[in-house]
């Protein structure tokens, strides 16, 4: 399976998007939708951000304005599940729900919704008490989530396990634990669940963030990372991912391997 890139840029945490959401100005959102699609994004993350007063209305509006300019599938990113549902109602293509932790009430809200709309789910290996440190505890959560997929009738390969990477200047010891989790997740079911990461988080507040991001991306892909929420306009990063994908023998080598990767 070839690597899936989820474009991170349509997020109200970024100033231009936050302002656009507050004023219901579609232009910056549509520009980033086109730009990320052209850069090869397979999914576009959509997060209304903290400035929206009515997150349900904002999510629905964002999905609609993005679909006016491109047909890239969307990854609806919110802790407000009513907002996600409002977005799913208007999505033209099967979407990804971002995200659901290993907490029973949330599983019971999200999984039936995913089933209803044919959506995939990004599942976080954490619960109310937070992110565990060890790979073993992360895997325990992943098992719960995969079991829930079975329970609610969601195909295993529509579950994207996110083992949650933390900034390396805050929690450096998590980085190898996440890699070990990625390896073990693949043994949980047949077909195995997919995996994903919010990659940029690994370098939060660090020096030379792009170098950290692309190095960790390559390490994680080797351990079984299938997708990641990334800056798809970071050419060095995308080229490193394309090369890792090719060196894992997932696509036949040709001189234009990077270009082919972007055009999939």
């Amino acid at each position: 399976m070839a690597f899936e890139m989820i474009g991170e840029r349509i997020n109200g945490m970024f100033k231009d998007i936050g302002e656009a959401v507050a004023k219901f100005d579609p232009k910056p959102i549509q520009e980033w939708a086109i730009k990320q699609t052209e850069a090869g994004a397979h999914w576009l993350d959509v997060n209304v951000g903290p400035t929206a007063t009515d997150r349900v209305k904002a999510m629905r509006w964002m999905v609609e304005v993005i679909q006016e300019v491109c047909d890239t599938p969307l990854c609806l990113d919110s802790t407000n599940y009513d907002a996600i549902e409002a977005g799913l109602e208007v999505c033209k293509k099967p979407a990804l729900i971002n995200s659901c932790p290993a907490e029973r009430p949330k599983i019971e809200r999200v999984f039936p919704m995913a089933k209803k709309y044919g959506a995939g789910i990004i599942c976080l290996t954490m619960d109310k008490s937070g992110i565990p440190k060890s790979a073993d505890q992360r895997i325990a959560f992943a098992m719960e989530l995969v079991a829930a997929a079975d329970e609610f009738g969601i195909p295993y390969d529509m579950i994207y396990i996110d083992p949650l990477i933390l900034p390396c200047n805050v929690a450096q010891d998590h980085a190898p634990e996440v890699l070990e989790t990625l390896r073990q997740v693949k043994t949980l079911s047949d077909p195995p669940p997919k995996t994903t990461l919010g990659l940029s988080n690994v370098s939060q507040n660090c020096a030379n963030r792009p170098l950290i991001n692309r190095t960790y991306a390559v390490m994680a892909i080797t351990c079984g990372l299938d997708s990641a929420i990334i800056d798809v306009c970071d050419d060095d990063l995308v080229e490193a991912i394309a090369t890792a994908d090719m060196l894992l023998n997932r696509s036949i080598y040709c001189d234009s391997w990077v270009k082919v990767f972007r055009q999939r």
């Binding site: 036949i252 080598y253 040709c254 001189d255 234009s256 270009k259 082919v260």
Partner: peptide, 10 residues
Amino acid sequence: DINIMKQLNI
């Protein structure tokens, strides 16, 4: 040559 086959198609 499979690699040239692919490149030529591109």
